[in-house]
Amino acid sequence: MDNFFFDFDNTLADSSNVAVVATQQAYVAKGLVAPTREAIVGYMGVPIEVSFAQMATVPLSTPELEALFTEFRQQYQRAERTGITVFEGIPATITTLNARGKRLYVVSSKHSTPLQRNLDQVGLGQSFAAICGSDRVAHYKPAPDGILDLMARFDLDPQHSVMIGDAKYDIRMGHNAGVATAGAMWGAADPASVKAEKPTYLLDTPAALLEL
């Protein structure tokens, strides 16, 4: 493979606890019933613009949702300072792939600004040729827009490309984009759902990426 598309959350870095805490605190701050940890984890990989309305126990208006999004982002930014850690083996693997001349990208359900901030925080800010946050696409994961955007911008061959992610939505996005897919099992909260999508590869460690 020549082109590697990475998800960020729970693929490059462990951020699951931050997402759970920030989500629950945001709902409570807005007088809503906090979703369970299981519900939040089940929606990881889906942008909050989609998941938050579905996790609410009452219908929310557009202004109410926007206020909830803002509260979540504030809670997340406070929690991320100490709660996000890069997975063991990721820095060395990324360094080796870059040294081999591979082209590395990040496709995330986060907006681009917090995505870049989180990459900087875990020491990977300069490791990727480009990133694509959810603010750059018309349709969110599992739609292929993020991958297609990067392939068009950098004239990449889908036959030599792979999407790496920890969630079923990442694998579906890769399938929809016509690229190979790799389940990042080291970060998968629901391994069975990832396997059910029949990714091209199932990888237990980041170092296994060096064999693709």
Rank of each mutant, 00 (worst) to 15 (best):
M1H: 15
N3I: 13
F6H: 01
F6V: 01
T11M: 12
T11H: 06
T11N: 03
S15V: 06
V20N: 02
T23L: 09
Q25M: 10
Y27W: 08
V28M: 07
K30P: 01
T36R: 03
T36H: 04
E38T: 10
S51N: 08
F52G: 02
A56V: 01
T57Q: 07
T57P: 06
V58C: 03
P63M: 10
T70C: 05
E71A: 08
E71F: 08
Y76N: 09
E88Y: 00
G89I: 00
N98Q: 14
V106S: 04
S109A: 07
S112L: 03
T113M: 07
L115E: 02
N118M: 14
L119R: 00
V122L: 01
G125I: 00
A129L: 13
A130C: 13
G133Q: 07
A138W: 05
I147K: 06
L148G: 11
D149V: 11
D155K: 11
I164Q: 08
D166F: 09
G174F: 15
G174V: 09
H175N: 08
N176I: 08
V179R: 07
A189L: 05
A192P: 13
A192S: 15
K195L: 14
P199E: 08
T200E: 14
T200Y: 14
Y201V: 14
P206D: 03
E211F: 04
